[in-house]
């Protein structure tokens, strides 16, 4: 019986510590929020703003979904950095840490674009934002979708330059 009561006590402690860690990160004392402070603050990018940025080629769009989904359709010129192979695929991103990066995934309920943003900030990129509506929002708004193979960081700017 003792093992059960002790396990219960320990589990309660774990929950309390989890709550404390969450509060600490919310308060910005420890890493999770300091990640945000390292880069630009997170802002919600809306559709017209993102479309304008895309048209002017001001940012590199980073698709956080798996390669299979990326190939089915992505924002033209976007690069694919799937979270499952994030360290391997980082090389597709520009080496300049000041490059404006916009991460996205499926839609507003998909969290991986936010996770990728945090990861990229940890990697030293200073200007990373999330496009919350994702590829489905983009497509629903009637904007073009590319269904080709893996794109390169420069391809979008080259297309824009034509």
């Amino acid at each position: 019986m003792r093992i059960f009561s002790d396990s219960l006590f320990i589990t309660l402690w774990i929950c309390l510590v989890a709550l404390a860690l969450w509060c600490i990160t919310l308060a910005g004392i420890l890493p999770d929020n300091s990640i945000s402070h390292r880069g630009t603050p997170s802002i919600e990018l809306d559709m017209p703003e993102v479309h304008q940025v895309w048209q002017q080629g001001e940012a590199v769009f980073v698709d956080a979904r798996g390669t299979k989904y990326f190939k089915r359709g992505h924002i033209p010129g976007a690069v694919n950095v799937p979270l499952s192979r994030v360290k391997e695929t980082l090389s597709v991103l520009p080496t300049d840490k000041d490059t404006y990066l916009i991460t996205y995934c499926g839609n507003i309920s998909c969290p991986i674009a936010h996770i990728l943003r945090e990861f990229l900030l940890e990697e030293g990129y200073r200007n990373v934002q999330v496009f919350p509506s994702g590829i489905f929002g983009w497509e629903s708004a009637g904007y073009p979708v590319e269904k080709a193979d893996l794109a390169h960081p420069d391809s979008h700017s080259k297309e824009q330059g034509k």
Binding site: S84, I115, L116, E118, E122
Partner: peptide
């Protein structure tokens, strides 16, 4: 310390709902 990386790793297991 590297919480963002860890959350990314948890996600990449594709076990838990988002």
């Amino acid at each position: 310390d590297g919480f963002g990386t860890f959350v990314a790793a948890v996600e990449s297991y594709h076990i838990l709902p988002a």
